[in-house]
Design a protein around this nucleic acid. Structure first.
Length: 301
DNA sequence: TTGTGTTTTACGACCTCC
DNA sequence: GGAGGTCGTAAAACACAA
């Protein structure tokens, strides 16, 4: 056996002499001599490995085998047997090879056409199989990176939605207090002193007046609210309903319990936000109203 | 120098498409 | 059925702290 001197190479190798000339083999650690460039140079380099092509040239074996990439790959097979039976020795691609592969990866939109594979392999002095494997692994890395980016994007959108939801809730609280206060002022009452059981039961006339007052407040605040929440407020619909005879008719538009899109400024739930707030202010004063049985009390929580 | 974590290369199993 | 894809993983190559 004859060992070659691999410049800038950490790849275990051995050169086998033969009557018909020398053959270079790329083997694993136990297969042959090991020359480490790092040991020679006394330091580590990035990507210290030369290609099979470079090594063959450096060894000056005098073999004109560089034109046949498949033959080059076959050398490893000769050492290890069929690729499926035993792993081939790993060989790092050079920076130049990786750069060319990256360019091709971008140009071909991550697809590798057979002709392109063959051409790349020939040009870079590696086996077509290596090009295919490199693309497979590169696609996997690209997908992993995309996954991270998608996650970051979704998280940012989620945080933004949460912030919007908090703002909506705060606005809702503020406006609810405003409606109640104004309603009570119009009724000539002072704000309740947290004794709801002892409150006097309003008459039907007062009840209707309360609702109409609430609608008025909503109309006055509509522009401000639309600006602060970014949600459409169907005040007109609600106002029309307030003119009907039956207060119960207002309940037809009562909100559904929050769905998975809670906090979302969507088309249905939050569009009912203000009318619902107004309505509830009135319903709370409705004769015989039982707050515990209120099916949409979730809205206030 | 060594231990350890990360990246890269390569493969087998399985799936899909033509 | 073959070619080429993904997925999961092994193992070599590499980086880096202690």
């Amino acid at each position: 056996m004859e060992s070659g001197r691999l410049i800038n190479s950490g790849v275990p190798f051995r050169a086998r002499g033969g009557s018909g000339g020398q053959m270079l083999l790329f083997g694993g650690g136990s297969h042959g001599g090991v020359l480490m460039a790092a040991a020679e140079n006394g330091r580590r380099n990035k990507r210290p490995f030369s290609t099979a092509q470079e090594e063959l040239h450096q060894l000056e074996l005098g073999l004109d085998m560089m034109d046949d990439v498949d033959q080059l790959c076959g050398f490893e097979y000769e050492l290890h047997g069929a690729p499926s039976s035993e792993r081939m020795t790993k060989r790092r691609l050079t920076a130049e090879q990786v750069r060319a592969l990256e360019v091709s990866f971008e140009e071909e939109k991550r697809k590798l056409e057979p002709e392109r594979k063959t051409e790349l392999a020939r040009r870079l002095g590696i086996a077509p199989r290596q090009v295919a494997v490199w693309f497979q692994n590169r696609r996997a890395r690209w997908r992993a990176k995309q996954l991270v980016q998608d996650f970051d994007r979704l998280r940012a959108a989620h945080d933004e939605l949460l912030a919007g939801r908090d703002k909506l809730l705060a606005d809702n609280d503020r406006l609810r207090s405003q409606v109640i206060t104004l309603t009570e002022k119009l009724q000539g009452k002072e704000p309740p002193v947290s004794q709801p059981e002892e409150q006097s039961v309003p008459s039907a006339a007062t009840y209707t007046t309360t609702i109409q007052t609430a609608v008025l407040v909503v109309q006055l605040d509509e522009d401000q609210l639309r600006e602060s929440t970014g949600c459409a407020v169907p005040v007109q619909e609600f106002a029309e309903g307030a003119n009907s005879d039956s207060p119960e008719s207002y309940l037809a538009g009562a909100p559904s319990p929050p769905s998975s899109s809670e906090g979302d400024c969507g088309d249905e739930g939050s569009a009912l936000l203000l009318p619902d707030a107004m309505l509830l202010a009135a319903v709370e004063q409705r004769p015989g109203h039982d707050a515990e049985e209120d099916s949409w009390k979730w809205f206030w929580n």
